[in-house]
């Protein structure tokens, strides 16, 4: 039997493991869980209102993956398919976030109101090394700002910047065009930056 952790030609380290499970080694499903439960749980914490909802989402995702794994076509990376299932579980779990009502973000709302709002000085939070900034309260500010983002923008920025999917992969996971992903990502980032700036200004 091939080594389940070996990468295949398309760079998917999970293909062999999935093939082994689908050929009858269902006991290896635990290895898939082991590989992804932490990632999915953290994805759930960013996307759901409560840790309990995140746990439900992770469980629903793995149960659905178990149920539908035989239909996996190997044309895409397993991880992309997994997050597609997880995203669907998130959306079913909570159609509406209590934190972030659905609304459109426009580019204009992130432009400085006038020249007096324009800064030529780099704020301290943007000039400090990452480890110093992340040790402080800013990590909490950005976590809350992510939860405050309307869901359609939050999904994109979490998949792109937190989970590290490419624009193309995110487009496939969410069934959107790459252009749409880029537009949503930019607005989501500007929303987060505004939250960080506001925190700094009121500090």
């Amino acid at each position: 039997m091939p080594n389940p952790s070996e990468k295949t030609k398309n760079g998917d380290k999970d293909t062999e493991l999935v093939r082994a499970i689908n050929s009858g080694r269902q006991d290896l499903f635990y290895e898939l869980v082991h590989r992804y439960e932490k990632s999915l749980y953290n994805f759930g914490l960013r996307m759901c209102d409560t840790p309990s909802d995140a746990e439900d989402m992770v469980q629903d995702t793995f149960l659905n993956v178990f149920k539908y794994l035989e239909g996996f076509r190997y044309e895409t990376k397993f991880r992309n398919w997994l997050y597609r299932v997880a995203t669907s579980a998130c959306l079913k779990k909570k159609r509406r976030s209590k934190y972030a009502p659905d609304r459109e973000l426009s580019l204009e709302e992130f432009l400085p109101a006038d020249e007096s709002a324009v800064s030529a000085d780099l704020p301290r939070w943007a000039s400090q090394p990452l480890d110093q900034v992340l040790d402080g309260e800013l990590a909490g500010v950005i976590r809350q700002a992510l939860l405050d983002l309307p869901e359609k923008y939050r999904l994109v920025v979490v998949l792109r910047d937190v989970e590290g999917f490419t624009t193309q992969e995110t487009a496939e996971i969410l069934d959107l065009t790459p252009t749409n992903i880029k537009v949503r990502l930019h607005r989501a980032r500007l929303f987060l930056r505004k939250a960080l700036k506001s925190y700094h200004e009121t500090d």
Partner: peptide, 18 residues
């Protein structure tokens, strides 16, 4: 620079244990 730092913060957010 502020936007770059925002992206970097997202990329390095701490991941909790299950």
């Amino acid at each position: 620079k502020t936007l770059k730092q925002t992206v970097a913060l997202c990329k390095h957010l701490e991941r909790r244990q299950v």
